[in-house]
Design a protein around this nucleic acid. Sequence first.
DNA 1: TTGAAAGCGATACCAT
DNA 2: ATGGTATCGCTTTCAA
Lengths: 348, 348
Amino acid sequence: MKREPPTILDVAKLAKVAVGTVSNVLNGKVPVSDSRRRRVQKAIEKLGYTQNILATGLRRRRTPMVGVCVPHTSVAYFSALVDAFEEVGADRGYKIIQVLTQLDPAQELDRVQALLHYHVAGLILVPSIQPDRTLKALARSGTPVVIIDRPTGTDIFDEVTFDNRGAMFDVARRLIALGHRRIVLIVQQPKLSTTRLRIRGLREAVAEAGGLAAALIVQCGPDEITLTSRLAELLRQDDPPTAFVAANNTIAAWLMRALRSLQVDFPGAVSVMAFGEPEWADLVTPRLSVVRQPTGEIARTAWELLIRRMNDEKTPVRHVELKAEIVMRDSVASNLPRAAGGPKVTRR
Amino acid sequence: MKREPPTILDVAKLAKVAVGTVSNVLNGKVPVSDSRRRRVQKAIEKLGYTQNILATGLRRRRTPMVGVCVPHTSVAYFSALVDAFEEVGADRGYKIIQVLTQLDPAQELDRVQALLHYHVAGLILVPSIQPDRTLKALARSGTPVVIIDRPTGTDIFDEVTFDNRGAMFDVARRLIALGHRRIVLIVQQPKLSTTRLRIRGLREAVAEAGGLAAALIVQCGPDEITLTSRLAELLRQDDPPTAFVAANNTIAAWLMRALRSLQVDFPGAVSVMAFGEPEWADLVTPRLSVVRQPTGEIARTAWELLIRRMNDEKTPVRHVELKAEIVMRDSVASNLPRAAGGPKVTRR
DNA sequence: TTGAAAGCGATACCAT
DNA sequence: ATGGTATCGCTTTCAA
């Protein structure tokens, strides 16, 4: 018994007022006399009237929804971000439309364009490797946008990122101080801006150590098996790497499983760190050391910037860079020759 | 330089045709002569025209979006579902709007109502503990709905669930066969339909074992600390429980950490199982045994049912129940007196 | 086939 | 403060 939902006209008729008056009651911007307001409210109640956002959006040329575009939600970091946005956004009366890029620039463009068709009020984007066309479309649309996590290298969008270079630098420095000489960074997407920054941080730390240390970037394949064989190869060579850094929790999980299946003594022979903090970081043995991204703060800041831009089209562009926190646990151990059971890293 | 986006009118003007013709080209339902079609397409290209979905939706009284309402995405099971929907939905030209209930019936109602304002073409819902008002609103709206994961006990919506009772029954039976006599099910929401079914399965298995075994339902608090102290209490009593089943990956993580901090010999003294399959299940020691939900199949089936209902308003209601898979790993061990190092459960 | 025109449900302006 | 009306961008008759 699907009856057509009541419209503002039905309400106006029942309350014996003009449609404009109903609209005014609804939006509360223009004053309405008490008596009429009550009549309208009663009518709304009785009819079970609900606003049609499509019509409102069409007229207002803007909808109270914000698009959020992330790679996928299987990386804990991203799902945490989405959760945070849903929460903070709802408080301000915005709905979140979530779309996924699956790491594919073409899909990214497609999905973002779809969001633009909806005339979303704003858009939060974690860009892919090749976001150029997407960014162009975004710029052309004039939609308020905040880029998060991955700097675009442009100056047209607000950005909230965290200091990947610095974090990686600190991590590498600590590893080197612990006696590690060959450090491997395992990444999924070498061309990603974030990845490049991490590589830079790593190289800088290595350079600082003079000829002592060396860095190696490994691109993991699409699955665990590829990574495992690549790893086996690496560890077979003479003077094999002793420290591994995984770019996210998925890779970290693959890496740990690979090390186990290869029966590598861990953290005895090799140390491991990861970006992101999966819920299992301190459940596994050895407990995983991580670079903890300031997820909540990123979400909050991004939302603030977005609100600001949605309110004022031409407020100056801002780039906010937050600091990540390094959390050392058992998966990182000393590699100093004299210190087989020697000085341990601080645990927490 | 935000210029107004071109409309169908601009296209018509440039192509020197009527707006209706442009619309026909766009939708491809009504035949259009080749020459005009080309002119229209060229104009669209040139102007960079994109359809305004709000207007289309208003006119058609339906939008190509499907709402997905889940508790949150930090439980891997739910984020996997959302990912699956985004993928399968996009293929059919639907966008997914995701909203979260945060386990709160009031928030659930609010969010679902918002989705209804958008006149979504369909809605997929993982209901909360108290979904009555939401379900009523949904029924009233006439929107195609598919309920997943948690049966509602009504016959007005299509449902895709999996056999929680059966899965729990099998799990309990195996545990009992392994010599466990006191089995604890740790849940977050005792009144949830899913939970009730699991409890029933557990009770049935216990009953089957005669006076041999006993079941205990523990409601964990909102955080790990509460659970830890509750657990300590349980384990302190005489004849303490030897098997624990966690309702999801979050509780499983809490449970494992709690057991460690309480220094319980595990899986020596107690065995552990969990519903859901977190990425860390086989990373932890001992590797976690789980009830693996058929996530992909649930998503696929739900989508099929939704499509079916979106196409045919009054196709008969269907309830599909899928089977879950029990995956035994090291976290479950024998509790038979004679079998300290005795018969092990099959591993995989 | 094609063009003209009537809405879809709301907002916002203009008189009153 | 209130009522009447044009309008948002598009689909969908209805004639031609």
